[in-house]
Every structure is written in structure tokens, then in C-alpha cells.
Design a binder for these strands. Structure first.
Lengths: 111, 111
DNA sequence: ACTGCTTCCATCGATAGACGATGGGAAGAC
DNA sequence: GTCTTCCCATCGTCTATCGATGGAAGCAGT
């Protein structure tokens, strides 16, 4: 029971991270999780049960589009692509994130 | 319906912020909200419906203690004090936060 | 005396997001 | 033929933030 939850992610930043990953180019879900783990030096570990619902959100909001295809490993994979609206959203979420983090850092650095 | 929620806070950072505020010394709830707003240059606006439940959590976890008293303005106020365990928790949450933010920044700065 | 603003407390219900568990299918290695 | 890896996805639980709401008490102005 009430065990502490081990957070692998800062809540509220998942969409931002996914959008950023997709800014590199078309990518499938599994690949997104890998890229995030790698570029964060194994700190950010996005589970599939967080990832796929998030991708559904992004689709619904029109920030990404999806198409079926085959992965490099010859497997059935769904490729996601950033839309122009997605690019705008990425910029907005990024600015917001930086703003919030800067504010928190100010608080944390007060004596 | 589905209007976007205006986030005044990075989810998951409220406890950290409160603990940090209380590291300055004994303080009442309203005062905590003010300090956070001021030291963050009006970015972090903690609503009372976020603040008081959070304080209850901290009490339950033994990270703060509370006692009734009178505010500077001569009003009935409940003063919260950081416990040693609270100080440890503050350090831990802060380290975790910095670690996560650094990881996210790495992702955001990849080309 | 009344009105209203500010300070200070607190709860409730709705909503959203992250996660563990679980399920499946198909490729390639041994 | 079995195992591992890759790749998809959903369901249920839990936690946290927030809007709305309610109250009490001090102070200022009229």
C-alpha cells in the first residue's frame, strides 16, 4: 500500500518531450521512448502505458499525424509526424517549461 | 468544455516549493503562497485549494508540524515548521528535481 | 452601523496525467 | 520450437492540481 511512487518523469512534460523527439523527424512510438532515454542519459524512461495515451492526445489535438509502415527491423510500426501546429505547440510548451523552471530555480536559490 | 487548463505550477513540484519556503522558518499557509509568488517574480501562483491539501500531506508524512498562533496582522493563523525529516525530504526532492530538469534540458537541446 | 476588502482557514468534486499490469503479434536467433 | 526483442495498445488505479465554495475575523471608509 501507500508505497512511494517512483517517478520516471516530471509530470506535465511528456507531451513536450515527445514533440521534441518528433522534431527530429518521423518516428515510431518505441523509437521515441528510446531516443528520450538515450538523449537523457537514461534518466527519462517513458513506459509504454504513458507513451501511447500521450500519442493519442497529440493525434487528437492535431499536433502529430500517424501512418502505418515498416520499421528498420522489418516490423509493423506506426510512424508519427509533427504537424505545423505541433511545431507551434512544441515552441509554446518549451517556452512555458523554461519559464516555470526558471521560476522554481529562483525560489530554490533564495537563501 | 475541454478548455485547456492554465497551469500555474509544474505538477509534482508543490511539496518541494513549500518545503523550501519553510526552510526560511516558521510560516503560515497564506504567507507561504505569498513568498512563493514573490520569490518567483509572480510566476508561481499557488491557489489555496492546492496549498492546503499539500500542507496536509506534509503533516501526515511528518515533514512539517503545525501550531496555531496569531499572524502579524493580528489574525488567527496556523504556523508550519519544518522537521528534520522535512529537511531531508527537501534535499532529496530538490536533488531529484534538478536531476530531472537537467535530463529534460539535455533532450531539449539536442539538435 | 454597514459595506467591502483583505487576510486566513479549509473542503469538495471534477479532471487529467502517469504508471503497473496485462494482452497480443511478428521477426530473428539459437 | 522456444526465446528474446521489437512494436502495438488498453484498463484500472492513484495522485495531484484546480475551480468553486464557504466561513470567520480585522480594518478602512462612509
Amino acid at each position: 500500500m501507500g508505497r512511494h511512487q517512483q517517478l520516471e518523469l516530471l509530470p506535465g512534460t511528456l507531451d513536450l518531450l515527445i514533440l521534441k523527439a518528433l522534431a527530429r523527424g518521423k518516428m515510431h512510438g518505441y523509437g521515441i521512448a528510446q531516443i528520450l532515454k538515450e538523449t537523457s542519459d537514461n534518466v527519462l524512461e517513458v513506459g509504454e502505458s504513458s507513451l501511447y495515451p500521450a500519442l493519442q492526445r497529440l493525434l487528437l489535438n492535431g499536433w502529430v499525424t500517424a501512418e502505418w509502415g515498416a520499421s528498420e527491423n522489418n516490423r509493423r510500426a506506426r510512424y508519427y509526424t509533427l504537424t505545423p501546429a505541433g511545431r507551434k505547440q512544441l515552441a509554446a510548451e518549451r517556452a512555458d517549461f523554461e519559464r516555470m523552471v526558471a521560476a522554481i530555480q529562483r525560489v530554490l536559490q533564495t537563501a
